[in-house]
Design a protein around this nucleic acid. Structure first.
Lengths: 242, 242
DNA sequence: TAACTTAGTGTATGAGTTACACCTTTTCAA
DNA sequence: TTGAAAAGGTGTAACTCATACACTAAGTTA
C-alpha cells in the first residue's frame, strides 16, 4: 500500500465547514453499501427476498435488501443488520459473495457494494416490511421481476455460488429447520440442482456424510408411513467435503 | 436497498466549502482501496510480492501492493493498475478474493480494502520499485516478514483459495510461461501442495484434462533426455474441472 | 563407451458413484 | 375390516476414477 497524500488529509475528516455536509475529504470517497441475496425454499422452489423501490432511481423496480455501511460498523454486521430489519430474524447463515463497484452502477454517486449470500429455512422467516415500510416480497429465482442497479448480476453470482457449493460442502442444510426427514433433505437438493435424484443413492450419500444424526423420533404427515426425523450434528458450522 | 436521506445529500458531493478538503458528504464515507496478493514461483518456492512501508503507520513493516480506488475507476482496473506500477507487467491473472473492512484495520481512517489474487510466471516479472521508490521484494509464503494492517489475514485467505482451486480448476497453469514441459508443470503442483506427486499418475491426469497440447518441440536443458514441450490450449481462460 | 540424469510409459487394486425395483407402514374410505 | 393410496425405506452389481508402483529411453559428459 503506497502512501498517497490524501491518506493523511483524510484522517482529519471531521473538520466541519458546512453544517449540512460536515464530512469532508481531500479526495472524493465512494459510498459503501452491503446488499444481501437471501435464499429460501418455499413451495418447492428456490426463492429470494426483494424490496420494491419507492424512489428514483429505479422507482418501481425491485432491489436486494441492503444499505449503507455505518462508519464504525463491520461489513458483515451491516449485512446482518439490514437483513434483521427486513426479516426480523437474526443469526442467519451469511457469507461474503463479492464486491461490485463498477462506476455508474448507481447513477447518483459512486457506490461500492459488498454483496452477501444468506440462507434460511422458510420456517424461520416472517418477513415484515422494514422501517421504511417498503414492500418486501419473495420471488422464485426463475421468475424475477425487473431489478434495480446491477442486482441481476449479483443474484446470478449468488445462485452460481450456492449451486457450486453443493458439491463440496453441506451448505444446503442451512435451508432446513432444526429437524428434518431425509425426504425433506432430498427435496431441498432436488430443488437446488433442478433435477430428480435417485432416492437410494441420495440416502446412502447423506448418511455417509456423518453430519446428521437420527433423533429417534418420527414425523407423520399424511396418510402414509411416518418418516424418521434427523438433526444436523453441528448446527452453525458448514462442513467441507472430501 | 432502502433510500436513506444521505443518499440524496451525497449526490451533490462536489459542493466545495474548503479548497483543501473540497469533497464533502452529509454522512461519513470510508476510503476504499484494492490490495493484491501476487504469487509466483521462484526457486521452487511459492513467493509473493510485498512493499516496504516508508511511513507510519506500520513504518518498516511490509504490505501488499495496493492503493486507493479512483472515484471513476473500476475495482479490478485499480488492482491491475497498482500491480502494473509495481511490476511493470500487464495482463496478469487477477481474481477478486474478498473485501476486508473491519473498523480499525487502518488506524488513520476507515478503510475498506477489496483484495485480489494475482498469479504470474516468474518469467513475466521484472519487478522495479514503484513510482514512490518504495522497496519491493519477493518473500516465500513460508517466511513472511512482519506485515502491516490485516495483510496477514488477506494473504492467508489468498493462499487457501489458491490451493483449494487446484482441485477443480486449471488455475495453476497461470504460474507457467507460454510453453512448458510436464516436469515443470509437476514442479508447480508439487510446490503448491507442498508434497511429492507420483510422476505417472500426474502425467496421466494432466493429459486427460484436454487443456494442453504437444507443441512437437523438445527442450534440452542439461545432460539428459530432452523433454516434450507443451502449450496451454486456451491461454487466458482457466478451466473448471468435473 | 560407460556412467549419469531426467523423460517417459502401463497395469492391477480399491474406493466411490451410478443404475435400478420392491417391500413396509401408515391413513382413509368403502 | 380390509384394501387402496401414498410416501418411507432398503441392497447389489457395473462402472469410473484415483492410487500404488518400477523399469526403459534418450540425451550429455568424462
Amino acid at each position: 500500500m503506497t502512501d498517497k497524500p490524501h491518506t493523511i488529509a483524510a484522517s482529519d475528516a471531521d473538520a466541519a465547514t458546512d453544517p449540512e455536509q460536515p464530512h469532508c475529504y481531500r479526495y472524493p470517497h465512494p459510498a459503501v453499501t452491503t446488499d444481501v441475496v437471501l435464499f429460501t425454499i418455499r413451495d418447492d422452489r428456490l426463492q429470494l427476498l426483494l424490496i420494491e423501490r419507492g424512489n428514483e432511481p429505479f422507482k418501481g423496480s425491485w432491489a436486494l435488501p441492503g444499505g449503507f455501511v455505518d462508519i464504525d460498523e463491520d461489513l458483515e454486521t451491516c449485512a446482518a443488520r439490514e437483513l434483521a430489519e427486513e426479516t426480523g430474524v437474526e443469526n442467519l447463515y451469511l457469507e461474503q459473495l463479492g464486491t461490485f463497484g463498477k462506476p455508474g452502477r448507481d447513477p447518483r454517486e459512486r457506490v461500492i457494494s459488498v454483496a452477501y449470500l444468506a440462507l434460511a429455512p422458510e420456517s424461520r422467516l416472517q418477513v415484515r416490511a422494514g422501517d421504511d415500510a417498503a414492500a418486501a416480497a419473495w420471488f422464485p429465482v426463475k421468475a424475477l421481476p425487473p431489478l434495480a442497479f446491477d442486482h441481476d448480476e449479483i443474484i446470478a453470482m449468488a445462485h452460481r455460488r450456492l449451486v457450486a457449493k453443493l458439491d463440496y460442502s453441506t451448505i444446503a442444510f442451512q435451508l432446513l429447520p432444526e429437524t428434518f426427514t431425509l425426504s425433506e433433505l432430498q427435496q431441498v437438493y432436488e430443488t437446488l440442482v433442478d433435477a430428480e435424484i435417485d432416492k437410494r443413492n441420495f440416502r446412502k450419500w447423506a448418511q455417509a456424510l456423518e453430519v446428521i444424526e437420527d433423533t429417534g423420533e418420527f414425523r407423520r404427515l399424511g396418510s402414509h408411513r411416518p418418516a424418521r426425523v434427523y438433526r444436523l450434528l453441528d448446527r452453525e458450522r458448514i462442513a467441507f467435503l472430501k
